[in-house]
Design a binder for these strands. Structure first.
Lengths: 138, 138
DNA sequence: AGATTTTTTGTAATCAAAACGCAAATTTAG
DNA sequence: CTAAATTTGCGTTTTGATTACAAAAAATCT
């Protein structure tokens, strides 16, 4: 995966627009995961809510970003690393949400251990959210 | 934990009302987790949306039910087992959502393995959602 | 049982999040 | 530069969740 907005767009056959470039840069700069609301307030250029929804959906479909479940029933997003192809997400890393600063991080290096399931259950995807306090807030 | 609605209510110092009894019975009968919408359509007596919201909140506060994050950013609920006290939930079991029938189950017997976190991260709560196909849909 | 107090419920109104349709604007290709 | 295709912005609509308040129901006390 490229590490600049334009490269990522080109790599995914997406047209280069201000909104996409800006949102991508937001993800590239911030180390934590962003919600739709975060993006709306983070981007100074004031893009339309609907456009942000659509942009996120597009990125999601292309495998550029992935969903992170929030504990309150919301959703945040973060960049995918190399393994994700269009439509096929592979996320075996742990997500961490700090209950102090409310930021959510991908712990890319920390893989989810093998989880044993009862007979007959077929695993496809897995999502792990650990909550607690992060190094900054400790 | 009692296994009948009235017992559970009494045990938690909650008044006995039709709504509470019905919703509790819903949880006791269904083996899968229920969303607010499920309850709304499942209960034939047609209780008010708002009442259902409040009832769920009450049960949540009392530690009678616990939240299960849904992959689409929604929330479902399921009965707690013994370990939960008022305000203090302890859920170290895996949640499973079948992508065929869309039902979500608590795999009570299948505990979450130890998850290693980077230096400085303090774990408080953890939530694991596995998606795939359940025995019925396999 | 009957009256009083407290809690719970239903209704209506409010608020926010998300989705849709369409016309205008922007990007790419010829 | 023009035309075709995609993307964006706006208005509208739908849906989900919360609040305020009056009515109803449950527990308490004689």
């Amino acid at each position: 995966m490229e590490n600049n907005a334009l490269g990522i767009l080109r790599q995914n056959d997406l047209r280069h627009t201000d909104t996409r470039e800006n949102i991508l840069n937001g993800f590239l700069q911030k180390s934590s995961a962003l919600s739709h609301g975060d993006i709306e307030t983070y981007l100074t250029d004031g893009f339309d809510r609907v456009t942000i929804y659509r942009t996120l959906k597009t990125f999601l479909d292309k495998g550029i970003i992935h969903k992170i479940l929030d504990d309150n029933g919301g959703v945040k997003y973060a960049l995918c690393k190399d393994q994700c192809a269009s439509g096929h997400h592979h996320h075996d890393h742990v997500h961490f949400k700090c209950s102090e600063c409310n930021e959510t991080f991908c712990l890319e290096k920390f893989l989810i251990p093998e989880i044993i399931l009862p007979e007959g259950y077929q695993r496809k995807e897995i999502n792990v959210l650990v909550q607690g306090t992060c190094p900054k807030c400790n």
